Amino acid sequence: MIATMDYVAILDRSEELGKMILDSDVMEAYRHSQKELHEDKEAQKLVQAFSSIKEHYEDVQRFGRYHPDYNTIMKEVRKVKREMDMNDKVASFKIAERNLQQLLDEISQYLAYSVSEQIKVPKDGAALSESGCGCGSGGGCGCAV
């Protein structure tokens, strides 16, 4: 019975924490910048152009520099990405996204270290990395960091 009550208390506190995060200024700034990004037609054109060229880039990556369009696609990807990143709405969204990720990382670290200093905590969004590992060991386990 005591273990059950402890679990209920932990769940209640985790819900409170979740609500605090959702109501935070950082989350509000993220939502606001996300809304502005989605409503800006120019930014959406740039994002769409980048998504389109990224598909070509992924096809070329399968063959690497041996693909006949490798140099052309690499230059085009950098050009389109630079254009997208220079847009004010895209830049604002990326900053807000980074700030939210930092808040979540800090909370994760605080929670983990309150249990034990030995717990490995993903940092800088490592849990969301494309490698899928997010172990926080800095590549010590052999994953792609």
Rank of each mutant, 00 (worst) to 15 (best):
M74K: 14
N99A: 10
V60M: 04
I10R: 14
I73S: 04
K19D: 11
N87H: 15
Y70M: 00
E55P: 00
M74H: 11
Y70L: 00
R65D: 12
Q34P: 00
A29Y: 02
Q102M: 05
Q101W: 03
Y113M: 02
A43E: 07
Y110L: 12
Y66M: 10
K19H: 09
Q109S: 10
I53Y: 04
P122K: 07
K89C: 06
K54H: 15
V26W: 05
S92P: 02
A29P: 01
T72E: 14
Q118L: 13
G18I: 04
E15L: 12
K81H: 12
K123I: 08
A112G: 05
E117C: 02
Q109K: 13
Q102E: 11
D69C: 04
E97S: 14
F93P: 01
A112R: 04
M74T: 11
A9Q: 13
D40R: 09
D40H: 15
F93Q: 08
K123Q: 15
S108R: 11
M84K: 14
M84C: 11
R13N: 08
V90F: 08
A91G: 01
V121H: 06
H32Q: 13
E36A: 08
K79T: 10
D23I: 00
M86Q: 15
E42V: 12
E58Y: 10
D59C: 00
H38W: 08
E106T: 06
T72A: 12
E42G: 02
M27G: 00
H56G: 00
F63L: 09
V80T: 14
Y66S: 13
E15A: 12
H56W: 04
K75W: 08
Y113H: 13
E76K: 15
M84P: 03
H56C: 01
F63H: 11
Q34M: 11
D69G: 03
D85H: 11
K79M: 04
L22R: 09
K75H: 12
V121A: 05
V26S: 03
Y57E: 14
I10P: 04
K81T: 05
V77D: 07
N99K: 15
E117D: 13
S33C: 07
R98T: 11
D85N: 14
I10H: 12
A9V: 05
V80G: 07
E39W: 02
S52F: 02
K123D: 09
N99T: 09
M20E: 14
L11S: 11
L111E: 13
Y110M: 10
Q102W: 02
S14G: 00
K94R: 14
S114P: 00
A29I: 06
D59A: 01
D124T: 05
H38S: 12
D12L: 11
G18Y: 10
S51Y: 01
Y110C: 02
L111G: 13
F93C: 03
K41R: 13
A9P: 01
V115Q: 09
D23A: 14
L103M: 15
Y30H: 15
R82S: 10
P68F: 10
A96N: 07
F93S: 03
L46W: 07
K89A: 10
E36S: 05
D88E: 15
A29V: 09
L17E: 12
H56I: 05
K75L: 11
K54I: 02
